[in-house]
Design a protein around this nucleic acid. Structure first.
Lengths: 299, 299
DNA sequence: CCCGATCCATGAGCCGTACTCATACCCCGA
DNA sequence: TCGGGGTATGAGTACGGCTCATGGATCGGG
């Protein structure tokens, strides 16, 4: 005798859950999937009945996941990804059992400076060795849950992240790659850089420089807030201030800025990668990690 | 415009793949699912078309998975399990946001001595703390791919395994729990135990004792092959031989045997657990691992 | 050698379900 | 009170998956 209620969620139902969560509403989710709002509404109700819990709180403007909904959506992303891997690997294993080339899309979330100054070399090596892999880099600001959050939510397969203890990506795989130092940057030839206003940007307000500043006997007179590290560098180059910036942001800095070491007690930050446990073993992620490590150890 | 070919496998299709692989044929798989052979045939063809690879070799009596089929079936089991976990955890998170009780089945593959002498204490603690979890222990001989193979193939959620480097469970999560020593066991009061025949059992032919034997200046005169470590202990207790056995197999050994340490260069083996990346983060597996570690560190 | 047994494949038809369209509902702000 | 975001729901349609029945291959035994 078959179970009276079919309890498992079909892939398209999972996709709908994810789309609704991402889009923030049934109607919006419907358009991203090319479906009708009606279909989405029915599907979500069906999923909720199967699970036995309300997954979305319907409100005036859109729908927001409940606690159970958050759970379900996060899991749904993983199931969908695992299904992709299933198909890709089974498809791949048709050619040769042992030495099979990793191939397929690889979604990378990276913070700005890593995407500009670390990833290009990595991806070039990756492309040379595994032309079948199609990396997709998305620049994500290292704010809030940061790049690791993209992985946690299933929107990326691997994140290049700064590893401060604050962000705790429970249940994710985290590995350090290298530690980089912060340096003082100021307009080339400026006689008294410390008198200049400090140029900072949102992502840099982390725990790294706080402690260092606390130990200094001088504080900057004024502070300028810039959009990102690139803008900071431009401002400093234009003579509008000085900044404390990590090495990655200073790769390829123009001649108009001068960089000086901050001495043995300078602030540092660790850069590493974050991925999900189930992807850590997949061929594509393994290939990328190998190149990441190789490139990073050369830095 | 929708994708012209629907590429994802529905749960029932995955279940059919698993059933066919388990039953060894389309017809046999059909009866285990309560379906028609016709339905199974169509479904498998559909899955093969979606994946783009032949998954089963149809033969005279039954069907056997191809290389791609093995891959697909192992993945299918894992996807199905992950779907179960999705539903269970989302259902569980309906009661309270923070303190949510893990619940649901938890399939454990363990080798004999660990199931007899390690797991009972672990499962008792687990039951006390998480009464909603339903552990199912299956004893698997540590031969071939061993208990870890059960996890790799999706037939168990967690394996208690001996961690010799030989078995390489690529893509799985492996953690050590403790290291245990081998001891010499012989009939109590026997004057010359080394003159007795060596009693051994199939699973013990691992790499652990090999090296040690090579360094010894004596070799046993005869060897008796027993079914498992329990039988070995009985034979030794009956005065029919002596044996080299790991500590777990010697828990609760009868008074009729005497155990002596083999000195500082005695052989040892590592015992640990193996699980899949996607389950490593699930509440049920996490709960079990916690008790495993707690119990093991007390050993 | 043919016969039956035992597999899988395939054609025809039924039925559930997942979609669309259209409409109803609900709540808020102007 | 009405309009404009949202979601829910009724009616009708299309497709996919199921069963039944049959066909085709392959082997072992009288």
């Amino acid at each position: 005798m078959a179970r009276t209620t079919d309890t498992d969620l079909a892939p398209h139902e999972l996709r709908i859950l994810v789309a609704v969560a991402d889009a923030g509403g049934f109607s919006a989710g419907a358009v991203t999937l090319g479906l009708t709002q009606s279909a989405v509404s029915r599907s979500v109700r069906g999923s909720e009945r199967k699970i036995g819990a309300v997954l979305f709180e319907r409100g005036r403007n859109g729908a927001r996941p409940t606690a159970a909904g958050e759970q379900a959506v996060a899991h749904a992303r993983r199931v969908l990804r695992l299904l992709d891997v299933l198909v890709a690997e089974a498809r791949g294993s048709v050619r040769s059992d042992a030495a099979r080339e990793p191939e397929g899309p690889l979604r990378i979330a990276a913070f700005r400076s890593s995407a500009l100054h670390l990833l290009p070399a990595v991806l070039q090596r990756l492309r040379e060795r595994h032309p079948g892999i199609e990396p997709q880099v998305r620049i994500v600001r290292e704010l809030g849950r940061g790049t690791a959050g993209e992985v946690a939510d299933g929107r990326a397969d691997l994140a290049i992240a700064t590893l401060d203890g604050a962000r705790l990506p429970a249940g994710l795989v985290v590995h350090g790659l290298f530690e980089e130092s912060y340096s003082l940057v100021y307009p080339a030839g400026h006689p008294a850089p410390r008198a200049l206003p400090l140029v900072d940007w949102a992502e840099n307000c982390g725990s790294y420089t706080r402690a260092w500043w606390g130990a200094q006997d001088w504080i900057p007179g004024a502070t300028i807030e810039a959009e990102d590290d690139g803008a900071v560098l431009t401002l400093v180059g234009g003579g509008h201030g000085m900044a404390i910036m990590p090495a990655l942001s200073l790769v390829g800095a123009p001649d108009s800025v001068e960089i000086t070491d901050l001495g043995p007690k300078r602030p540092t930050r660790r850069v590493g990668y974050v991925t999900t446990p189930e992807l850590a073993g997949s061929a594509v992620v393994r290939a990328l990690v190998r190149e990441l490590r190789a490139t990073s150890s050369a830095v």
